[in-house]
Design a protein around this nucleic acid. Sequence first.
DNA 1: AGAAGGTTTTGAACGCGTTCGAAACCTTGG
DNA 2: CCAAGGTTTCGAACGCGTTCAAAACCTTCT
Lengths: 274, 274
Amino acid sequence: MDDTTEPGGANPTGQAPETPAGELPGGRARPKTDKSEQTRALILDTAMRLFRERGYDKTTMRAIAAEAGVSVGNAYYYFESKEFLIQGFYDQMTREHAVEALARMADQRDFSDRLCTALDSWVDCAAPYHEFASQFFRTAADPNSSLSPFSNESHPARDTAVKLFREVLDGSDLGPKIDPELDELLPDLLWLHQMIVVLYWVFDRTEDTERTRAFVKRCSPFVAKMVTLSRYRVFRPLVRDAVDMIKDFVLPTIGKAAPAPTEAPKRKRRAKKD
Amino acid sequence: MDDTTEPGGANPTGQAPETPAGELPGGRARPKTDKSEQTRALILDTAMRLFRERGYDKTTMRAIAAEAGVSVGNAYYYFESKEFLIQGFYDQMTREHAVEALARMADQRDFSDRLCTALDSWVDCAAPYHEFASQFFRTAADPNSSLSPFSNESHPARDTAVKLFREVLDGSDLGPKIDPELDELLPDLLWLHQMIVVLYWVFDRTEDTERTRAFVKRCSPFVAKMVTLSRYRVFRPLVRDAVDMIKDFVLPTIGKAAPAPTEAPKRKRRAKKD
DNA sequence: AGAAGGTTTTGAACGCGTTCGAAACCTTGG
DNA sequence: CCAAGGTTTCGAACGCGTTCAAAACCTTCT
């Protein structure tokens, strides 16, 4: 009712102004006109605001449409379903988190510290949404949903996050002696670790998610220690096994093909078919 | 329309005939009469059948009621919501799995083998439901739902599963040298491991969930190796840290209080508040 | 037998996400 | 200027999970 008169403005969700090709990530058809994109943005912004104000479940599509001054049908013209409205939010938060985390760890060199900072930042960035995060977390848990963190391509958010953990590593003063294979895997593993933190956070009912914060503080040195120890002889076989398993079973599910064709399959005891 | 004439029969879902106290696990009020329990069972059985036949989403409450020959309102008299119908299914499958697994591992002594068998059994038991499992998996992912594997008490299914893993351990020929603290934790940890397998399984789109089966085969020796190695000196500090973390952060979330009042808090380097 | 009080059953109604045919609004080309 | 064809907008309508007030049924007591 009030801000429908000034819909355009700067690009609203931080989305890149030009869409790369074909389809929009979370939307329907590719926008053709400026007007179209404005309407789309208006609906998305309104939705996000209402999500924040009332929570996901209590925000009805009718309310979004009404508040945005359009019809329900129009909302569905731009967003295939209610949950597609979340994707925008998710991408945005991931980007904000990356920026925030990088800023905070700028003068940190210790790996454990940097990791802790990165995860802490996430908890802080996500804090305002904790209440209703759980409401759409179940959507993300559906393998058929485009929101699921794994398995679905077209998820730039994951790339952003993985790159952040690459930074966490590269900015650390860990010796250069880490197993290169492991090193290549680590960003993905740390991202996986973050997914566990997210899981923990979603289920965390403590005040200000204190327990998650404590969890992060305790996990980070532990993870750092494991990474450090991975260089020692005794741990090598374990690390080998783990690396192989991850390559074979984890990476494929997040859209990265297991065996690089340029490299011959090294060790890898073959397991019999049956 | 057809089998409404013979509703009673033996106890339908394998539920224990006498309810312990107060409330039914997944239902509403405590049943008072036989007739009541029959109706309840009829509705639940019909629901399960339809879930299997059509999947969760495509089975409407109206269809369940119609097929069972009752009114929708009546279904809601016995089951608080649609998802409460799942609880019965979940409990039942867990029990079936425990029986099946114990039978299969009867003559196995190797820990890795037993673990593998237990998990394999689960995949087999769950196989018929794979298609629609993902549909209610998202419900289980909601922390507010009574279906979530953690955080919610009144989940006898978890106890059943944890006890099974206790059996897996006790029947193994692992030396008696395992850290007793770790030993006490292990069933819960193995259950957690199973939850990861379940997660993997839900997202597994391969034929007959081949990848999950392979995953289990690869994980089991790995887990066994870790348990074995945990006895060696070098790994002790790591094990200590892990055990402490689990006690502090994992157990509390699954309803087990962290510090036993009978035991003084042993080592545990205190971390500063800020 | 009848009244009281509880348990069970009903089905109309509500609010929601979503769909769809049609209207309104743009472009373009003649 | 109008007609054609595409894009955008609309809102009534559908199917769903769920609620609720009232009816039906069942005990039990007088």
